[in-house]
Nucleic acid binder design. Sequence first.
DNA 1: CTGAAAGCGCTAACAT
DNA 2: ATGTTAGCGCTTTCAG
Lengths: 354, 354
Amino acid sequence: MNEAGASRREATVNDVAQLARVSKATAARALGDYGAVSDAVRDRVQKAADELGYRPNALARTMSTGRSNTLGIIIGDIENPYFAKATRGAADVAAEAGYDLILSNSDEEAETEAKAVAVQLAKRVDGLLIAPASSLAPGNLQPVLDARRPLVLFDRTVPGLDVDAVVTDNRSGARQLTELLLRAGHRRIAFISTLTHPRAFRADEILSSSAVAERVQGFTESLRRAGVARPEASVHLNARHDGVDAVASRILGGDDPVTAIIASDSLVALAAFRTARRMGVSIPERLSLVAFDDADWMSVTTPDITVVEQPINEIGAQATRMLLRRIAGDGRPPATTVLPQQLVERGSVATPPR
Amino acid sequence: MNEAGASRREATVNDVAQLARVSKATAARALGDYGAVSDAVRDRVQKAADELGYRPNALARTMSTGRSNTLGIIIGDIENPYFAKATRGAADVAAEAGYDLILSNSDEEAETEAKAVAVQLAKRVDGLLIAPASSLAPGNLQPVLDARRPLVLFDRTVPGLDVDAVVTDNRSGARQLTELLLRAGHRRIAFISTLTHPRAFRADEILSSSAVAERVQGFTESLRRAGVARPEASVHLNARHDGVDAVASRILGGDDPVTAIIASDSLVALAAFRTARRMGVSIPERLSLVAFDDADWMSVTTPDITVVEQPINEIGAQATRMLLRRIAGDGRPPATTVLPQQLVERGSVATPPR
DNA sequence: CTGAAAGCGCTAACAT
DNA sequence: ATGTTAGCGCTTTCAG
């Protein structure tokens, strides 16, 4: 490991070959651990490589083999604990298999996502893991298919796009949450999501996130079955743009406040919790609050928060395993894996105020 | 954008050139937007590219230019909100400048980190952002220097390694926290960190994280100045291995329990908070709890938690800006940027129980 | 403004 | 087991 002096240029296979007095091919075989090389030569080459401080050029290798050993992952925002967990699950499986991850944040914007897709394809990732910014815009993902690169979606599906996906049973989760509230006696229940939507939600409208769409379906279904009129009016979207605080204050204030809130993710739950506290609306006495996703902090608040949890790490891990299988040539028809959501009852639900 | 039929192979500059009836060089100039090309030809090439569904091969470009437009980032764990925020800050600055990020988790293990470094160098990243797993092992980072790739450290420095770094004033933060507790009347204060350490902490011992080391210094200094004997006995390391819960229960139980805890990060704070609650130790009446880093949830607990906050996004952003400058050829001597830590007083500190 | 040709560092046939 | 020779897709001289 001598790092021969101040050589300006990185040592190449050729340099090593010359020092070891073998051909470039032989040196490459020894270094890359493929083909057949005699032990004597292997040692000699290794020694030369150490002396020169040889570091392989993975790009050159990719150029000739066509495989980059790199996966792309495009998510909404790495600061969102959901994506952080899924990304970690993916990174672990990838690393285990000798792959790296190129990370891009889409900010849930179709345009940003499209750019990220283009860049990742240009970098010749072997496959792509995407939580699609919109379930309605297969166009964004089409380049991946055109490039014939394996693609696995997670968290959301894109109906009409025939690719693998790993999601959880959002409809069931929504039902579990809604029915729990219904059983406790609630009728005025609000569902809050940050999903961008051009107007107030109307019945049976198509949403740009399949995950939120299913949650809304489970929610409205359960309400309807319980005889609640116009359940769609209880669906509050656009909270990213409008501000979760603003939305929450609005529905908690006024003359006919809701008695329960279902937060579509842990970030919404946090904001709602904060707003309720700020307004002096006590949980669970005056407001029952439940959420999707079990964030760490939800077990230390007063009260702690009832949720449906999903195996987020596993979502990323399974999606990656699937992707790796596709890269390896698995030609089975695309499939959607649906993981369960499970209710975790804690202290944030009570009978509504008279 | 015709994506000509079922062509097995991705279209190359050559294909585009032929279709446009120009030379490869000209097509490349038009596509890559460099050199000089007549408008007529440019259009013709663009049209041909669209027709063939041409997607540039960034690797080939890197092979000839030597620049990959990719940065590597190696952190402890993307699930840790601290690293998630710093990574986001880095990703935004990088994206703005047309760079991508290859992400690796070191799990704070030197060996994992060393592998990640090797892989990233092999992928010819243009520069590296690293939160070093150990401030004591410059060897892990030496290959980066040998390869003459710009390197910027963040969160921790590596004394003796002459490179740029972006950190915060941990010593000051520690003092602020400690003195706040001292002023409130506490004398039995514990500092808890998950930092791996081979044995119980002894005075003036060298720690493997410069960040934790500075916090410990600020902490013990303040204690000593206040006349507290053997402040080093109040430093509890290794909590990752031993379990924060176990450490916390131990120091909160027994016949001489501590009256205050300083958590070295938000994860430790969460575990300590949970443990205190489980043991029925009320905050702040029987235990004052303060922490480094202002996590979102810290403002919704009861009580909310007093912390010193650091501009985490900005740490990542500044480190990346610095790295980009180095890549651009800035030759000034390496510098360490120190960002401030600021006290945010909330409700988790009170006078100790008599 | 355009073209021809060399070369980035590696791997993959094909010989020997 | 080892060497020779072509590429991989792009950029970059150097000519014209």
